[in-house]
C-alpha cells in the first residue's frame, strides 16, 4: 500500500478563533479563515483544519470527546486508493466522497480519510550546514544566521494517538494498511511508517486506559534543526507555553520542541528525522527519561556576557 503519510488533521474545538490564531502563529499559512474555522497549510500543502466541535461537516467525535475528528491520509495514486477501498470495505462501512476520496473508521475508533495526496513537491536546498572537510554546503558568502527569519513548517510529519488496545491498533495499521513497525518504546507502543515514506514514523501510538483516548501531539517537519530552534524561540516569545524541549529524540533522532495548544493536544516542531527502509530491524527500549532524548534544554532570555568594556 503506497500510503505516503498524513496529509491533514481535522479538529473540532469550542475556541475556533484561538485555534486559528495559534496555527497561524505556529507558522502555517491560513486559508479561507472565518468564524467557522479554516485550513492551515505547511509549505507542501499538508494541513490542519479547525472547525467548531458542533460543525455538521465533521465525523462524530470519539467517545472521550477528544478534539481530533479526522486523520486524512495521502496516497500515491489511484491504484493505491482503489486497493485500500477494496481492503477496508471487507469489514467496515466506507463513504466515498465526490472528489474520489473515502472515509472510514480504524479499529480503535479514529475517523480516517484516504485521498490522492495533496502534497506538492517543494524545492529546498539539500543541506545548509557547513561541515569541516565537506563541500561548502551553504555556499560561499551565504550567511546562516538571519535575525528576522520566520521559519515555515514544511510538511505534516506525524501524529501520536492514545489508544485503548495498542496491539489491536498496531495490527490494523500493519496488517490492513501495510505500515512497518520501525521501533518500539515499551510499554507505550510502536513507531510506525507507511510504505510510501522512509520517515522513521508518521504514527506513534501510546496505550492508555480507554477514557484517555485521543491525540497526544502532532508535528510538522522544519527544514533543519536551526529552523526548528528559531521557530520555537519565536513561538515562545509570542507567549505560547513550551511543554518539552528543545531537545533531540533517540528513536527517530528527530530534534523536537513541544508546546501546549488551545486544540487540547501538544503541537510539536521537529527536524532531521531518521530515514529507514525495509532492511531495518526494529529496536525496542523502555520509556525512560534517558531513552526519551539525548538532551533536553530550556529556553532562556537572550543574554550577553558582561557590558561594554571600553
Amino acid at each position: 500500500m503506497n500510503i505516503i503519510g498524513p496529509d491533514g488533521l481535522i479538529f473540532g474545538v469550542d475556541n475556533v478563533e484561538d485555534c486559528c490564531k495559534y496555527m497561524t502563529d505556529y507558522g502555517l499559512t491560513p486559508n479561507n479563515v472565518d468564524s467557522s474555522g479554516g485550513v492551515f497549510t505547511g509549505v507542501d500543502g499538508t494541513f490542519v483544519e479547525i472547525r467548531h466541535k458542533d460543525d455538521a461537516s465533521l465525523p462524530a467525535p470519539l467517545h472521550t470527546g477528544a478534539s481530533i475528528r479526522k486523520t486524512v491520509y495521502g496516497v500515491a495514486d489511484q491504484a493505491t486508493l482503489d486497493a485500500l477501498k477494496a481492503e477496508l470495505s471487507k469489514d467496515r462501512d466506507i463513504c466515498v466522497n465526490s472528489d474520489g476520496s473515502f472515509d472510514c473508521v480504524d479499529d480503535s475508533g479514529f475517523a480516517l480519510a484516504f485521498q490522492i495526496t495533496c502534497r506538492k513537491n517543494t524545492e529546498v536546498a539539500d543541506q545548509i550546514v557547513n561541515v569541516p572537510g565537506a563541500k561548502a554546503n551553504r555556499g560561499i558568502n551565504v550567511v546562516g544566521s538571519i535575525k528576522d527569519h520566520a521559519p515555515k513548517p514544511q510538511t505534516l510529519s506525524h501524529v501520536v494517538y492514545f489508544v485503548p488496545d495498542v496491539a489491536k491498533a498496531e495490527a490494523f495499521y500493519r496488517d490492513r494498511l501495510g505500515f512497518r513497525v520501525v521501533d518500539r518504546m515499551n510499554p507505550l507502543g510502536p513507531f510506525m511508517r507507511p510504505q510510501g515514506t522512509m520517515d522513521h514514523h508518521t504514527l506513534f501510538m501510546i496505550e492508555t486506559p480507554p477514557f484517555m483516548q485521543g491525540v497526544e501531539h502532532f508535528t510538522f517537519h522544519m527544514l533543519n534543526p536551526s529552523d526548528m530552534l528559531q521557530a520555537g524561540k519565536r513561538f515562545q516569545d509570542l507567549g505560547y507555553e513550551s511543554f518539552w524541549g528543545p531537545g533531540r529524540h533517540i528513536m527517530g533522532s528527530n530534534w523536537f520542541w513541544y508546546f501546549n495548544s488551545p486544540l487540547g493536544v501538544h503541537v510539536e516542531y521537529d527536524a532531521d528525522m531518521d530515514l529507514h527502509d525495509d532492511s531495518w530491524e526494529a529496536r525496542e527500549c523502555m520509556a525512560t527519561e534517558d531513552n526519551s532524548q539525548i538532551y533536553n534544554f530550556t529556553l532562556v532570555a537572550n543574554w550577553r556576557p558582561g557590558g561594554d568594556p571600553h
Binding site: V13, D14, N15, V16, D18, Y22, M212, G214, E216, L238, G239, Y240, E241, F243, N260, S261, P262, G264, V265, H266
Partner: peptide
Amino acid sequence: WKRNQYLNGDKQYIMCAAH
C-alpha cells in the same frame, strides 16, 4: 496554552492545553 490563558472557548471551564 499561552501566557495567562487557562480557559476554554466560552470561558465556562478551565481547559488543560496539554490534552
